[in-house]
Structure formats: C-alpha cells, structure tokens
C-alpha cells in the first residue's frame, strides 16, 4: 500500500490544463492571484468566480477534490469572516450587542474576503492538481534562471528539489521498515500520552537519520560517477516549447485582467 503514495497532489489527466506548458501555468497562476486582489466590487469578483469555475471545469478535476483542498483552510475562512464582520468601520448598523455591532459593510467585506480566499486556493490548487512535481520543478528552474545574473545557483536549487521529491517515497518505505523492526523488538509506539509517544519516536528517527545520511553519501558518489558537476555545461533532454494553447491561456488570463479593471471602474468600489 505504501508503494502507491503520490507526491504532491497531482491528478493524472489529459485536459488542456494538464497539457499546458508548466512555465506558462506557473506564471498565469501568479497573475491570477494578483487579479484576485485587484477586485474591488462584486461585479469584478463575480467575473473572477466565473473564471475560477471555468478553469476548474476545463481541468476536469472533480469538485470533490476541489472541496478537499479547501478543507484545511476552513478555520482560516471562519476566522477571516468573523474578524471582518466585527472590525469593519462604517456602514449602516444592522444590529449590535455589547460593544460589537454588525454593519452591512462588515457583512459585505466578510463575504468578499471569504470568496477571495476560496478563489485563491482553488486557483493555486489547479496548478498542483494538473502539473507533476517534476514538471513544476523544471518550470521553476527555467523561470528562475535569470537569477543566475546574481550568482544564485538555480540549477543546484532545482536539483535539490528533484532529489527531495525522489527520496520521499524511499524514506517513507524506510520509516515503515524501521518501525516494524522496532515493534518486533517490543517498542510500544501507540500507547501512552503525548510525551511518551514522542519519546517512542526517538528509536525510529535516529536510525532513519543515519540511513538518510548514508544514502546521501552514496548518492553523491553515484552522481559524481555520472559526471555531475553542478549546473555548468549541463544540457536538458526535455525542452519546453510554448504552443498555441499556451498563448490562448495567456490571452484568457489577459482578458480576465482587462475585465476586472473595466468592472472596477464601471461600478463603484465596495471596499
């Protein structure tokens, strides 16, 4: 069972969103997030919601999965809503008690914020749902490559990310093995209070760390044997090329940008 783990939250698929160039997707997601924060009234926010739903539909990611990605931020959503309801100044008071008052503006702002965060999470989840971690790493490497000017070793960073991704399943398997070995020697991992259970983890973590270092050492040898010398002089097998659909996606996001600007000026700002 443990062999089936998937890293990140990539959902295999063949939608247009899956096939888009990973670099383009990363950049567009970035702009998408900016646009979310430019929305000033419910008209432009409505357009934002429409686009979010449109992209979700195109990606063919099941709605259930989308809701799952929103679950961890549920508490944050509630917190944001409550704070905004009580701490927004101005507006017509609807009802009040003790020192707190609820205004119509407070309610608007709270709803606005919550929808913004939902759009934000949905938009960025779409990126990780439709792009493999490997492609994402490649994309980040290529997008950050101008930083070489500042002597930042982007290649090395990307290699570190790739290796981390590569060794997650290996180390999970190893942890499983060590846990079984310690259980076989009578280690009790499940009972006792928090402190006791935390202490019981020590005989698992120490061998895991030792083995991780040994692996790193061997891996370094193996990489050197395959002529790895860092980023200089390195070529890549997989070249990334922008296709028509990538330009189409860029056009779509640009249209969203313009639409939001237009609606912001056409109608009065709410917040």
């Amino acid at each position: 069972m443990i062999r089936d783990i998937t890293i990140g939250q990539y959902l295999p698929g063949n939608s247009v969103l899956h096939r888009l160039d990973a670099r383009m997707k990363a950049v567009l997601t970035f702009f998408f997030i900016i646009v979310i924060f430019l929305c000033k009234n419910f008209w432009s926010l409505g357009l934002m919601i429409a686009f979010t739903l449109l992209f979700t539909a195109i990606s063919k990611v099941p709605l259930r999965m989308m809701l799952k990605s929103l679950k961890p931020i549920f508490v944050i959503l509630i917190f944001t809503a409550v704070l905004n309801i009580f701490y927004t100044d101005g507006g017509r008071e609807l009802f009040g008690f003790w020192k707190l008052s609820v205004t119509d503006k407070g309610l608007y702002t709270a709803g606005f914020m919550v929808i913004r965060i939902i759009c934000l999470i949905t938009g960025s989840s779409l990126l990780t749902y439709t792009t493999t971690p490997t492609l994402l790493t490649d994309a980040i490497e290529r997008l950050l490559s101008p930083l070489k000017v500042f002597k930042i070793q982007v290649n090395t960073l990307a290699m570190m990310m790739t290796l981390a991704l590569r060794f997650i399943p290996t180390l999970i398997e190893e942890t499983d093995r060590i846990m079984n070995a310690q259980k076989a020697r009578g280690a009790d991992l499940e009972s006792g209070g928090f402190i006791k259970r935390a202490k019981a983890l020590i005989p698992i973590l120490i061998p895991l760390f030792v083995s991780a270092f040994r692996r790193a050492y061997e891996l370094a040898f193996a990489m050197e044997c395959r002529c790895y010398r860092g980023g200089e002089g390195r070529t890549r097998m997989k070249q990334m090329k922008l296709k028509a659909r990538d330009l189409g996606a860029a056009f779509l996001v640009a249209a969203l940008f313009c639409g939001v600007f237009f609606l912001n000026y056409r109608f009065k700002a709410l917040i």
Binding site: I7, T134, T162, R166, T170, R215, E218, L219, R226
Partner: peptide, 8 residues
C-alpha cells in the same frame, strides 16, 4: 535506490 536521481 541510492543511485537513481530523478523521479521518472
């Protein structure tokens, strides 16, 4: 396991 570098 200790000489494979990539995820694919």
């Amino acid at each position: 396991d200790n000489q494979i570098v990539a995820t694919v």
